[in-house]
Design a protein around this nucleic acid. Structure first.
Length: 426
RNA sequence: GUGAGCGUAGCUCAACGGUAGAGCACCAGGCUGUGGCCCUGGGGGUUGUGGGUUCGAAUCCCAUCGCUCACCCCA
């Protein structure tokens, strides 16, 4: 048994899995271009205070899930537990507000949360993240949601379900929360112990409880949609009308409450089956107060994150076909020291011509070399041995047909090239 | 953080108190220079780790670490 193992909640992405990642990244490049998003990368390390301020004290992420440590200079740093706060920091620090609004940005990179790992949940996972900053029009909410759904369609996922809700704004949410707590205050004896705790710490999450005994209480609870202020209500209804007009199916989910403090108005998730008990492949919302909270001018924004590992799991679960990298076309087998030198020279010549080529290493039987050629999927083997060097004609063995031809040494590359014509080489 | 199940070869698993095995994979030979199929052979393990019970532990007990699943929460 090896001495070192990948640490808990982290994983290796082995070559067999990469076609799925490449498939997704291709779709990300395509869709972000279609919607006019530009790429940005921010550091994985940020000041801890950025997340305490941005995501919010009292949230699970900040209170118990951050990888926080003191660096050698005594600063408190954290591995990023989400993208948005860091992107907003970069937006302010680099003066991106001078660009045409909305400023549309996307990122792909690792996120760290200290959670108990299970199917589809890791301590390090990779997120595709999108942010659109500086516009409060619900048309932008529509576009951001459309982008997410477009991506999932593009990679070939089926059965996605858009969940959407509005959590109001600092003007109407506190009133709703007080109505909710008032309602719950007379029912605390019939709800679960977790809900009694939520009642104190984060009342909105009461709506999210899955314990059977709490369901009747939730069903009768005041609905936030009926308690939104006129601005929030209009924003939400307009967004829904845009989705209707575009025939985008959605489910208004009054119990959809997200775990980050900065969300205002629109919140949404995209659900799919097939990742164990996890069902969210995408989550996001509007954060109209965040930039101001971080010390910038009042600036609205909206964005989402989507977990690549979960997308890969879902693609595999749904048997979505993805393109595999093409096999090397040519394999050079050699017998003897001189033949090996010639093979090394020739394999470079093939590569210089843009033809993927492999050469055998070590000194092995021709049988073993052919077996390797077959296993790596080569189309043709160039056999170089003493006879070939003496005669100046090399053997070309075509593995799919089993045919073998003899070609003058200097015509080997040309001959292979002509035979492979029509086969995509890139 | 809570609960449950499980840790044996690179992988999937057997052996369940009495000499650690199979299939797949790998390497070689059959075929002294010709792949896939087949046959034969070979290499590979301090049975996660530490302690205990026992004449004897992969097997029983304790601890610890890890994995998986569920809760919580999320992507």
């Amino acid at each position: 048994m090896a001495k070192f193992k990948a640490i808990r909640g982290t994983r290796d992405v082995l070559p067999e899995e990469w076609p799925y990642w490449d498939h997704i990244e291709r779709a990300i490049r395509k869709v972000t271009a279609l919607y006019g998003y530009r790429k940005i990368a921010t550091p994985i390390l940020e000041e801890t205070g950025l997340y305490v301020r941005g995501v919010g004290q009292g949230t699970d992420i900040v209170d118990k899930e951050m990888y926080t440590f003191e660096d050698r200079g005594g600063r408190s740093l954290s591995l990023r537990p989400e993208f948005t706060a860091g992107i907003m920091r970069a937006y302010l620090e680099n003066g991106l507000h001078v660009q045409p609004k909305p400023v549309k940005l996307y990122s792909v990179g690792p996120i760290f949360r200290y959670e108990r790992p299970e199917a589809g949940r890791y301590r390090q996972h990779t997120q595709f993240n999108v942010e659109a900053i500086g516009e409060q029009d619900p048309a932008l909410d529509f576009e951001v949601i459309a982008l997410a759904l477009h991506l999932f369609r593009e990679i070939g996922l089926t059965g996605t379900r858009l969940q959407i809700n509005s959590t109001g704004c600092p003007r109407c949410r506190p009133q709703y929360v007080s109505q909710l707590t008032e309602y719950y205050s007379t029912r605390l004896d019939v709800v679960c112990s977790d809900c009694r705790r939520r009642f104190e710490r984060n009342p909105l999450r009461l709506l999210d409880c899955k314990v059977p005994q709490c369901q009747p209480v939730i069903a009768e609870a005041p609905n936030i949609r009926a308690h939104l202020c006129s601005e929030c209500r209009q924003h939400f209804e307009t967004l829904l009308s845009y989705l209707d007009a575009a025939s985008v199916p959605y489910e208004v989910n009054p119990r959809l409450v997200r775990g980050l403090d900065y969300y205002t108005k629109t919140v949404f998730e995209v659900w799919v089956q097939g990742i164990g008990s996890q069902n969210a492949i995408c989550g996001g919302g509007r954060y109209d107060g965040l930039i101001e909270e971080l010390g910038g001018p009042p600036t609205p924004g909206i964005g989402f994150g989507s977990g690549i590992e979960r997308l890969v799991l879902t693609l595999q679960e749904q048997n979505v076909p993805v393109a595999s990298p093409s096999a090397p076309a040519v394999f050079l087998a050699h017998l003897g020291e001189e033949a090996k030198r010639v093979a090394l020279e020739m394999v470079q010549a093939f590569r210089a011509e843009g033809i993927p080529a492999l050469v055998s290493f070590g000194e092995r039987s021709l049988k073993a070399q052919l077996r390797d050629a077959n296993r790596v999927g080569a189309r043709v083997v160039v056999v170089i041995g003493e006879e070939e060097l003496r005669d100046g004609r090399f053997q070309l063995k075509w593995l799919d047909r089993g045919e073998q031809t003899s070609v003058p040494r200097e015509q080997v590359i040309l001959s292979v090239k002509q035979e492979l014509r029509g086969v995509a080489l890139d």
